[in-house]
Amino acid sequence: MTDTLPAARPARPFFQVTGFRFRLSSLIALIAAGLLMEGMLRLGRIPAKWLYLNGPEFFDGRIWIYVGLAILFQALLGLLGIIVMRFALPRADAHLRWPPGRSYAGLALLIGITMGLIMLVADYWPQMLSGGPLNETYPVDPVDSPGWLAALAITGLAEETIFRGLLVGGLVLFLPGRVRAGAFEIPLAGVAVALMFGVAHWQAFVVDPLHMALAQQSYAFAWGLIYVWLMERSRSLLAPIIAHGAGNSTEVGLIMLWTVAAG
């Protein structure tokens, strides 16, 4: 009897797309998702702007109040969209639940802080090299600086509810398939929504320097992939909400500290 060695398993490629089948319904769903994204973001700003402009005198000049109100209204629209989706697409999973197992909250916080550091360097490296002020938009007084940090800390309530919960949750049914790069794997719908997440920051090309606009497009897409990964791993929106808010508030908090240190 001769000994035989078991056949070696073929090595998996580092990057792989599996289970993808393009259908007309996929294209229609992508277009609908893009329109829904833009519509919800714009619609949430309308009542926020009205309340900001017609609110008490304390609101005057405090843009963070408008930003916070817009986030809350957008989050409400996202929740309403998820409710509608549960009736229209019962198989869709928006991950709108408390984590059933490991929450990944600590990892999400660490990821968010790292994101904030990366965004700070990517956005303001010319000013950091010259030693000049980074951003004069964010005040450092004891009223407005906590207001800005609070408004940015809750950004995930709106954007994760809309982008990951509603859009990824629904698109998975119409855009099947998964994308894997090494050990990192997410649904193809998550990649599509990450691209939309980058496009949602298109106004950066109008109001910001070119290097900052390009950086925002790049890391918005990358962060979108990570948020989907956190959502899948935790089976909840909690972790991506934490990471999203921690990233934004970390960057702005560091800008404020830079301003104070620069005198």
Score class of each variant (00 low, 15 high):
L80T: 11
G81V: 15
I83Y: 09
I83V: 15
R86F: 13
A88N: 07
A92R: 03
D93C: 06
D93L: 06
H95M: 14
L96Q: 09
L96P: 03
L96S: 07
R97I: 10
R97M: 06
R97L: 08
W98G: 02
P99D: 05
P99Y: 08
R102T: 12
L109E: 02
L110Q: 11
I111L: 15
M115A: 14
M115L: 14
M115W: 15
G116P: 03
I118Y: 13
D123A: 09
D123K: 07
P126F: 12
P126E: 11
P126H: 06
Q127I: 12
S130G: 10
G132M: 04
P133A: 11
L134I: 08
N135Q: 13
N135Y: 06
P142W: 14
D144Q: 13
S145F: 10
P146D: 07
G147L: 12
G147R: 14
W148H: 04
W148D: 02
A151P: 05
I154C: 08
G156M: 11
L157M: 11
E159F: 05
E159R: 05
E160D: 09
T161C: 08
I162F: 02
G165H: 01
G165Q: 01
L167V: 11
V168W: 04
L173A: 11
L173K: 05
G177T: 12
A181T: 11
F184D: 12
E185V: 10
E185W: 01
I186W: 00
L188F: 12
L188Q: 00
V191W: 02
V191H: 02
A192C: 10
L195R: 01
F197C: 03
H201L: 12
W202V: 15
A204T: 07
V207G: 00
P209H: 03
L210P: 00
H211C: 07
M212C: 01
